[in-house]
Amino acid sequence: MCAFIYLFILAGCVKRVLASFMCVSSRSLWLRADSGSGPHESMAVQNWIDVLKSSQKTALIHDGKRKIHYLFADGKEMAEEYDLKTDELLCRKWRQKSTLGVPGVWQVEVGEPMNLPAALESDVIKENCSNPLFMRKDTKSSFQWRIRNLPYPKDVFSVSLAPSERCIIIKTTNKKYYKKFSVPDLDRSELPLDASALSYAHANNTLIVSYQKPKEIVALEQELLKEVKKLKGTSEADVDCKTQ
């Protein structure tokens, strides 16, 4: 009887030690990715490519846009739209079911934020249209964020990096606008943030924040585009979507 109890305790201890060891090791990996050197970096980029490759994809050419729908193994969905002529990314959005299984709404990562039907939502609270409007619009060489409706002089704004939190912070000295946002592309590939890649400009009531894409991302996007073009996209709208 006693021996049994001992065995149990022993087994419990071993499990706990193992768990803590695994925890430490994964954290050290993460730190290394943060400090930004070594072979691990390219491994993370490769991981993301693999995830993309293994996802179920449906392509469709419509309205001068190449539309791709990705369904990942964990149930997340991603939808991308590329311009047919310039191959520019016009829109990327994500959707995920909540823990209970309620289908979520599309969260826009890149492109114009979706306008929700106003009549349906009139009972709740929403931002006034005079508020600053935040959206991301990439170019070939850089990530770019545009914030419209900011009628203040340029010297009011300050844009900085917070490497510990992995995000970019926009502040205003007149305390009218503040935004903290991450760069999901860099997070997915576990690439470090670089302050020298960041720049910003202000014109026509719009603040434009740009971040030079690192070479890993540029390479990844070219590879992805090649992959996407290989997909057999139909030009008809009523394509049979396997992933839905």
Partner: peptide, 12 residues
């Protein structure tokens, strides 16, 4: 740090 104006619906 910031300020925002919200539109309110009837219930709100």
């Amino acid at each position: 740090e910031m300020e925002t104006i919200y539109d309110l619906g009837n219930k709100m």
